[in-house]
């Protein structure tokens, strides 16, 4: 029998909301509205996605999977784009990158028989890959913009000595990738030691044996590790060039970057 949380039990989750609400009220933090709104919104979103997933899982895989993956990638693109909206073509590049990574990872999963081409397996696993790649791309974009601003003098010095934009940005690319990959490496190092990963926890709660849950967790953790690394690398290597114009000159303001390709 599947483990189930009754609606009555679920109702008592309200206690977990009352605690931060009380704290906010007592210390006059002014976040009470936000706490209530986030809780209601999160609950509605989760139930909605629950019903959508139930519907999609019932569809034939060849329709349900491409449909849901496309929706996920489009939403992820719009979300990550916020971090680099001044950069030209960033939306297309993010979409292309996320799509290529998802198709690559999914192909490997299916090729090596790690999962079945079933919505109930492909959609949650792909969601994790796309979500983590989206975060990695967003962070890389943000970090790259900061690096370009902070290293303005070095970039000018490098260009003035005759460096090509690619050579001048080497340090920026290196720093961006380093900053994007280190948390990823650290996360993998401590996996299972500090907290049990979400997917594994979910499978164990769902009645799957811990060893089987670990196998799934390994598939997803290593897939995320690889896709996050690739995402950061892809977006950094694609986007650094937009900080320069065709005359190998550094574009120093958001306005210059925006208008450089128009």
């Amino acid at each position: 029998m599947e483990p189930e949380i009754s609606n009555q039990s679920l109702f008592f989750l309200i206690i977990f909301v009352i605690v931060p609400l009380a704290l906010s009220y007592y210390y006059q933090l002014g976040v009470s509205k936000n706490v209530i709104w986030s809780t209601v919104r999160g609950t509605v979103q989760l139930f909605a996605i629950g019903y959508i997933l139930t519907f999609l899982f019932d569809l034939p895989a060849r329709y349900g999977i491409p449909f849901m993956l496309t929706v996920m990638i489009i939403i992820a693109t719009f979300h990550a784009r916020q971090k680099g909206k001044d950069l030209p073509y960033v939306g297309f590049i993010l979409f292309g990158g996320l799509l290529a990574i998802e198709v690559g990872v999914l192909s490997l999963w299916l090729l090596f028989d790690m999962i079945q081409f079933r919505p109930s397996e492909v959609i949650p696993m792909s969601g994790m890959v796309i979500g983590n790649s989206m975060t990695a791309m967003g962070l890389a974009l943000e970090r790259m913009k900061t690096e370009f601003k902070e290293n303005n003098g070095r970039l000018l010095a490098s260009l003035s000595l005759g460096a090509e934009p690619k050579q001048a940005s080497h340090l920026i690319v290196q720093n961006t990738l380093h900053a994007s990959l280190i948390p990823n490496v650290d996360r993998l190092k401590t996996i299972g030691l500090v907290q049990l990963p979400g997917m594994m926890t979910g499978l164990i709660l769902g009645g799957v044996s811990p060893v089987m849950a670990i196998k799934y967790q390994l598939v997803i953790s290593l897939s995320i590790f690889s896709s996050v690394s690739l995402s950061a690398m892809f977006i950094t290597l694609c986007m650094y060039r937009y900080f320069f114009n065709k005359n190998k000159q550094l574009l120093q303001t958001d306005e210059e970057i925006r208008s450089s390709r128009s």
């Binding site: 003098g153 000018l156 010095a157 003035s160 000595l161 005759g162 090509e164 005359n247 190998k248």
Partner: peptide, 12 residues
């Protein structure tokens, strides 16, 4: 451009 920048050195 790169050859010119080599010939015309800049110290910031």
């Amino acid at each position: 451009i790169t050859a010119l920048r080599k010939q015309v050195g800049l110290v910031l």
